[in-house]
């Protein structure tokens, strides 16, 4: 990964065929970014699918989608949440007032209010490492190589080829937020019973 990010569009592919739901990504992220107890920048959510007796439990790693049209950026009254040219959505904790508008606007529940700073916090793709040419902590730690990170604009990148050679999906595509995190073989469609239960996680 180069330090010059011009023309790049960072993105991630999460290959559910390889993900075991081991939570190593969550732990690595927490360790790298000092994420407080009870909050997550990325974690693995569990769902129940089907109705009795045809019931199963599935899991899904969730992370900020670094949307191409991010609703959190639109919602922020002070422009503390912004999108870099390389597609990474960040929060400036010097100007965030902690109004939580971005948290309400995010359809993916990818944000939390940091109890120490009082500002919104979320996945940054470990931008402090990325700008040094190192991949995000969750990607480096994934034992099954289920998280693949790279430049979505680079035809030579693994993410570029995975997206073109596999059936991929994104979370809530109908909202038009254009997420930049793609899933392979994800069981995303929620069942009627989950929706009616008022929760899915």
């Amino acid at each position: 990964m180069a330090e010059n990010n011009s023309g790049k569009q960072w993105g991630m592919v999460i290959d559910m065929r390889r993900c075991t739901g081991c939570h190593a990504c969550s732990v690595a992220c927490k360790s790298e970014n000092e994420v407080p107890l009870g909050d997550f920048r990325t974690h693995v959510r569990y769902f129940e699918r089907g109705t009795y007796p045809q019931v199963r439990r599935v899991f899904m790693p969730i992370i900020c989608n670094h949307c191409d049209d991010p609703p959190c950026v639109r919602a922020c009254p002070t422009q503390a949440t912004y999108k870099r040219e390389d597609g990474i959505v960040l929060v400036n904790d010097k100007t965030c007032i902690g109004c939580r508008a971005c948290m309400v606007a995010c359809p993916y529940g990818a944000r939390y209010l940091h109890p120490r700073t009082g500002t919104a916090d979320k996945c940054t793709y470990c931008v402090h490492k990325l700008d040094e040419g190192v991949a995000p902590a969750c990607v480096n730690t994934c034992q099954g190589h289920a998280r693949i990170f790279g430049d979505l604009n680079d035809p030579a990148s693994e993410v570029y080829n995975l997206i073109r050679n596999n059936r991929v999906t994104v979370l809530k595509p109908d909202l038009g937020t254009e997420p930049q995190v793609y899933y392979i073989s994800a069981s995303i469609q929620t069942t009627k019973s989950e929706q009616e239960a008022g929760r899915g996680v």
């Binding site: 922020c76 009254p77 100007t95 007032i97 902690g98």
Partner: peptide, 25 residues
């Protein structure tokens, strides 16, 4: 209720036309 109440008044200076919350200020 804001995470950083003291910064609340900065919404008058750091405006964002796309944010309904900014207009509301």
């Amino acid at each position: 209720d804001a995470g950083v109440p003291i910064r609340f008044l900065t919404t008058f200076f750091r405006t964002h036309a796309a944010s309904a919350t900014s207009w509301g200020t």
